[in-house]
């Protein structure tokens, strides 16, 4: 059972690369922002449909949600636009590794400096080592293109 769940997550991760692979050529044909809209427009429409059918009655008043928690919607398009711009130049793998560097580095920084109201945590040497490995991977793919 557990292995099936793990395999599902692996497939879901493959889907993320597929998404990135679709975006580059699409952005080239119709424009990077239109390609981004295909993600958010289709995504919002689908989620709206899903939310109708899965409504749990946990209907919280929109006004009680802190406004800064909606800024996630501003950050998402940054990621998608960059995918459409970067994949044709870097390829899917290098783009994904670059994104990974940003993710690992950012989560390390959040813990280390105590941003977003999280409590400061001592340096986690495993996490630093992991980050160094990811950076090394990025450098290696870069060298691979140069050679």
């Amino acid at each position: 059972m557990r292995i099936i769940v793990i395999l599902l997550v692996v497939f879901a991760g493959m889907g993320l690369s597929f998404e990135a692979g679709l975006l580059g050529p699409l952005g080239h044909q119709v424009g990077h922002l239109w390609a981004t809209l295909s993600i958010f427009g289709v995504g919002a429409a689908l989620l709206w449909l899903i939310s109708i059918f899965t409504s749990t009655g946990k209907n919280q008043d929109m006004r009680s949600i802190p406004k800064w928690q909606l800024t996630g919607g501003l950050l998402g398009p940054i990621y998608v636009v960059v995918l459409t711009l970067a994949t044709p130049v870097l390829g899917v793998a290098m783009t994904m590794i670059g994104v990974l560097v940003g993710q690992v580095g950012k989560s390390f920084a959040i813990d280390y400096f105590g941003w977003f109201g999280t409590s400061k945590q001592p340096v986690d040497s495993l996490r630093v080592t992991g980050m160094l490995f990811v950076i090394a991977a990025l450098v290696l793919t870069y060298l691979g293109v140069q050679s």
Partner: peptide, 30 residues
């Protein structure tokens, strides 16, 4: 472009952190 990809990864992990807090309140789908 490499730099852009790194920055977008940072944006993605901030978004995940923010969405996590929002999701706890209104549910994941919403």
């Amino acid at each position: 472009f490499m730099l852009l990809a790194v920055i977008s990864g940072m944006a993605l992990s901030s978004q995940a952190a923010i969405n996590g807090q929002l999701g706890a309140k209104v549910g994941v789908i919403r």
